[in-house]
């Protein structure tokens, strides 16, 4: 499957939403909203990391393993992009 950047961000958004239960009540959040401020805990962060790695079939590199990586949908998307083989190749 060919994956372009937009769908990555959208998929990350969906994962975040599911892990944090945000839009269940119509709560909207943007790519730059601080997830820690939206109620993410270190445990839900772990679940988020596992789900991201699972979904994109990647292993985040050592340097991405820090709280900052999971701060926003944007930062997660960037980390996923960086960890994936060059964009546009088959996964």
């Amino acid at each position: 499957m060919t994956v372009s950047q937009e769908p990555v961000a959208e998929t990350v958004r969906l994962i975040v939403d599911k892990q944090l239960n945000l839009s269940a009540h119509g709560y909207e959040f943007g790519a730059d909203d601080d997830l820690w401020a939206l109620g993410m805990t270190s445990l839900t962060c772990m679940g988020l990391m596992l789900a991201v790695e699972d979904t994109f079939r990647i292993e985040l590199p050592e340097e991405a393993l820090k709280e900052g990586t999971f701060r926003t949908v944007g930062t997660i998307t960037a980390a996923v992009e960086a960890a994936r083989p060059a964009s546009g190749t088959k996964v």
């Binding site: 599911k18 892990q19 239960n21 596992l50 789900a51 790695e53 699972d54």
Partner: peptide
């Protein structure tokens, strides 16, 4: 690695 079911949502509105 096992998959984790996230916590179920409280479906009632918080008002």
């Amino acid at each position: 690695m096992p998959r984790f079911e996230p916590r179920p949502t409280n479906p009632f509105p918080l008002l």
